[in-house]
Design a protein around this nucleic acid. Sequence first.
DNA 1: ACTGTAGCGGAACGAAGTATTCCGTTCAAG
DNA 2: CTTGAACGGAATACTTCGTTCCGCTACAGT
Lengths: 209, 209
Amino acid sequence: MTKPMSGRRAQAARNDEVILRSAREVFLADPSAPIAAVAEHAGVGISALYRRYPSKEDLLRKLCADGLAQYTAVAEAAVTDEGDPWEVFERFMAGIVATRSSSLVRHLAGMFTPSEELYHASAYAGTLNDRIFERAQQAGVIRPDVNVNDMALIFEMVEAVTIGDEARRRELRGRYLALLLDGIRVSSSVLPGRAPEDRELSSRWDPGT
Amino acid sequence: MTKPMSGRRAQAARNDEVILRSAREVFLADPSAPIAAVAEHAGVGISALYRRYPSKEDLLRKLCADGLAQYTAVAEAAVTDEGDPWEVFERFMAGIVATRSSSLVRHLAGMFTPSEELYHASAYAGTLNDRIFERAQQAGVIRPDVNVNDMALIFEMVEAVTIGDEARRRELRGRYLALLLDGIRVSSSVLPGRAPEDRELSSRWDPGT
DNA sequence: ACTGTAGCGGAACGAAGTATTCCGTTCAAG
DNA sequence: CTTGAACGGAATACTTCGTTCCGCTACAGT
């Protein structure tokens, strides 16, 4: 797009981005997609990928780390925000759903041997979650029988909406997030079942597929 | 279970059931599971499967048809039930989630060339859906800005809860169905986005993976 | 201008997985 | 006994994928 587009170096730098964006999109659509699909989507050859990442696993790790960073960025903004407790919470939830970072991380986790960094990043994101949720619940804008860990499952449910093209999905995810958030405010009933425990959520990072 | 369990014939008849149950369980856990996984889960050889079904596709078709029948049975019970509108609706939703028939049908649809019967069974289930939903909404126990087709997506979301073993999942699915149902009663907000259309839902039966 | 090489496209390779077939075995029924 | 329905599971014939390899091109540094 810009002037300094000529030159092999510039082309390569641009490919860095294209490849990462493509990988994100492809693996978001199908976490077990072949690496060739990423190359095709990016409009480059396979070797362009292998020049940058020693293996598929490394690419996935990078993608997962980026997703976690994105999640953290949205969460930090919510922690900082001192506006109306409900609105901050709502914005946070909508933000995470919009970035799809939760989906990316969850689907990719467990597909590679987790690095130390990722483990810490994940723990940090957890503390941010706690603070955001705590503030909202203390303020009384969230029913008392939901738990921080319910948030993860709510993301999981909203992300399970896979109908139509990407634009339509965004629209529908917004719709059902709103529905869930309405359910999260009222206290017309008492939720059955124990909320998810930390251990249950963290087991996502285990070896399995 | 019964006395006449000896004899090759009886053994075979029992296998019919074991195989079908196993197939249901295995494909529910992983719709793209290999046929060998079903045989292993059932504790039989592969030829025991091929003796009954000419191909994997036939088995999937049968499974899908059974799932639809199960769905229809629950729905018919709800249509017949003239009790409290909200309770009938609630029982219906919980019933579908408990049988997992919606999940089975949705994951299996599109993995085989659909037969005429299935098409009709599906259409019939749709009309039952309409009647159940209509009654609840007419009675005013469901907010006016939700649509029949939202039900399908609600099932989809609840079924996306995949944590822990089967018992734990049942528990959590009940929890989140309750949360969604709480959201479906109140009218504290107006849901954003258009509700799903018929066409969007029926495209599940298309060729794709 | 010249040339070494970074960067790349894509065919080739080998390992893994899978639907289906095939063959030898078993055992109850006649 | 004998026979064949029912079966276990190895063998077959593909397909799919991650990764490597082999040339080719065009820029960077001289």
